[in-house]
Design a binder for these strands. Structure first.
Lengths: 184, 184
DNA sequence: TAGCACATGTAACTCGTTACATGATTTG
DNA sequence: CAAATCATGTAACGAGTTACATGTGCTA
């Protein structure tokens, strides 16, 4: 049974073949919006998936010190992925260092607190802008396919919509907090 | 320099003295809504905080195999907490196993997918109900103090409002997703 | 009387990050 | 010519979870 990271990799390989390096890049964006991993985790996990018969690779001779390996999901891997998708996810124990700071915000000067929150708001705003750009390009590229439940683009679009909603309402909440800190 | 968990504990002790056990309970709720830890982490971390002079304890003789220790934050601990609050939080790398499943939702039957999403929606709805109850009781208990930036209840209320918004919009998104999966 | 709440601690293990290591090709 | 990108791997470390361990008092 693969780890969560294993299923993340299978989810990428179900769309197209990729090298470990390409998987690592995908784990920054778009997967990185809801699951992260560094390359040092990816290579051992690919070995484990291959040992379990869920992926296999073919070697492409490369110029560097090691060969490039292109990974492909097997029918068995595809079945394991679909079965996992329908299992209930453990309740996401959120770990938000920013909210932890907010919990102790009463211990600092309200004006400095407002400045700190405004900094965070800007981060949310930048992420939202990024997501909205992505949404526009997805609409242009895929059109009606975004409403087809069997299309990979639909699933990616669904996660994107969740991200857009998240950032938008985080910004609204920051605005409320800044206003309240200012006494009104 | 304390770990993030250390600051979570300081944030609780800045409000009132607590034992390791009481801190563990608080790390389920309300801190657990944005930061979790088990008791096996709490006790070593308290030792570290004490070694750094940020908390100290007094022993209350108890009936069990070990004494009960009541921890109090020191002036130095309080300063460390306030300084940390104003430092920028690292961008919350969200880890949401549910969204990871959604990314591969195109590989399964849309009807089964909708059932899975509906199950998740119910979880969000239950959490929202819980938060709304909490909001009502905070309004009853604290009233206008919830608008006073220097009051600990204000900071707790701010995090609660973020939680309420999060669950509410997660539900809205589930409704959109279920509708889209049904072809509508 | 069995189980739960109270109360604290250690040990083993897993997961994840950062740093170490190597080396060709492309770009500024 | 220096830095970034491509490309793969290991090692050391830290953070976090689960299991082990102990023992009292209360309640169903």
């Amino acid at each position: 049974m693969p780890s969560t990271l294993g299923y993340a990799l299978l989810g990428l390989l179900a769309r197209q073949d990729r090298t470990g390096y390409q998987l690592t890049l995908a784990l920054r964006a778009p997967i990185g919006y809801f699951w992260t991993a560094s390359h040092s985790q990816v290579y051992p996990e690919l070995s484990r998936l291959e040992a379990d018969g869920l992926v296999r690779h073919r070697v492409i001779e490369g110029p560097g010190p090691r060969d490039t390996k292109s990974y492909r999901i097997t029918p068995s891997g595809r079945r394991a992925l679909s079965a996992w998708v329908l299992t209930p996810a453990p309740s996401a124990q959120s770990r938000d260092e920013f909210l932890l700071r907010v919990y102790s915000l009463w211990t600092v000067d309200p004006h400095q607190a407002a400045t700190m929150v405004a900094g965070r708001r800007e981060r949310y705003r930048a992420a939202l802008g990024n997501y909205l750009d992505l949404e526009r390009s997805m609409h242009d590229e895929f059109g009606d396919a975004l409403r087809d439940p069997g299309n990979p683009a639909f699933a990616a679009y669904a996660t994107l919509r969740r991200g857009i909603s998240f950032e938008r309402h985080a910004i609204e909440w920051c605005d409320w907090l800044i206003k309240t800190l200012a006494g009104g």
